[in-house]
């Protein structure tokens, strides 16, 4: 199984190549990033997100090491996408650098470790899921659902994915559904509002979501719509699993929820929008009480 989403950003000599996730499923195009402003541009325009933004940050630290301190890069990334914790990633880099290792080696080591860890996590999660796993998911977790399908298959289990379309950017329809179908996995696409009906009809028996942020008390922040899935899953007694990394010892409600420009709510339907006002909270909070189990990324220190 393969997907360009597994590693959507790469570093080649003097440039960073960023998979333009807004063009999927029509084309797999890469944007060349040569400056920090280029990087902030692709980040702000949602050309990359999730793992892509982590890789972009790390590669910017490598590429611009001699011209810009990682503190400054982290500050600018944080301002562009305020919910994600780039300052924490910067802290990781600084901690590793204190050991005297070169930055490019630190980053390549991190990525290798990260991929190993998500495969391990997929195996752990596969052990928790039922023999016939009908998994509801939202947004996109950068190929980890492929690893999960492999792990389930290895243990003799069967999987079907039910993918919420994830308005307004449609990461579910455009990316996850495409990625799963491309790998010949059983999957279905639904409108976000059909989740309750599917649960009521017992079409799904578990929910698996990613997490942009996690706290030590078990709360997460993820793509808008995740909280509703958590509430509904609890109502129907369906287990809800969150894929988390680096939980922090903070109050989840102290984390800024990014609100994006209202015009983006009308993505793809601009011709009908007629200047109407909209709200666009890009993320929501899922309290730990709604989460059956958080599976933390088992990174080596």
């Amino acid at each position: 199984m393969d997907s360009p989403l597994l590693f959507p950003v790469s570093l080649t000599e003097n440039t960073i190549q960023v998979l333009d996730e807004t063009k999927i499923p029509y084309t797999c195009e890469y944007i060349t990033v040569k400056t920090l402003d280029d990087a902030l541009g692709v980040l702000g325009q949602m050309k990359t997100r999730s793992l892509g933004q982590v890789l972009l940050f790390f590669y910017c630290c490598v590429l611009f090491e001699n011209s810009c301190a990682s503190d400054e890069i982290a500050g600018k990334f944080q301002k562009t996408r305020p919910t994600f914790d780039f300052l924490f990633l910067n802290g990781l880099i600084k901690r590793y650098r204190a050991s005297g290792a070169p930055l490019d080696k630190i980053v390549s080591g991190f990525i290798t470790n990260f991929d190993r860890a998500r495969k391990l996590r997929a195996t752990t999660l596969a052990g928790l899921l039922p023999q016939e796993a009908h998994i509801l998911t939202i947004c996109n977790v950068n190929g980890e659902l492929l690893y999960l399908a492999e792990a389930l298959e290895s243990s003799g289990k069967h999987v079907s994915y039910y993918v919420c379309e994830t308005r307004p950017y449609l990461q579910g329809s455009r990316i996850t559904f495409w990625e799963l179908r491309k790998n010949n996995l059983s999957c279905y696409l639904l409108c976000d509002n059909q989740a309750a009906l599917l649960m009521k009809k017992q079409k799904v028996n578990c929910v698996v979501v990613g997490a942009d942020r996690a706290t030590k008390t078990g709360d997460i922040i993820n793509k808008t719509g995740t909280y509703a899935l958590g509430c509904l899953a609890r109502h129907f007694n369906i287990p809800f699993y969150a894929l988390t990394q680096y939980p922090r010892d903070i109050d989840v409600n102290s984390i800024e929820i990014e609100e994006r420009p209202p015009r983006e709510v009308f993505s793809y339907i601009e011709k009908w929008s007629n200047g109407q006002d909209a709200v666009y909270p890009a993320f929501d909070v899922v309290p730990g009480r709604l989460i059956t189990k958080s599976l933390e990324l088992p990174m080596k220190q």
């Binding site: 994830t166 307004p168 409108c191 976000d192 808008t224 719509g225 909280y227 709510v265 909270p281 909070v285």
Partner: peptide, 11 residues
Amino acid sequence: AVYCTDNMIGI
């Protein structure tokens, strides 16, 4: 009135 996508009503 204000518009939102369906998945935003949770928050």
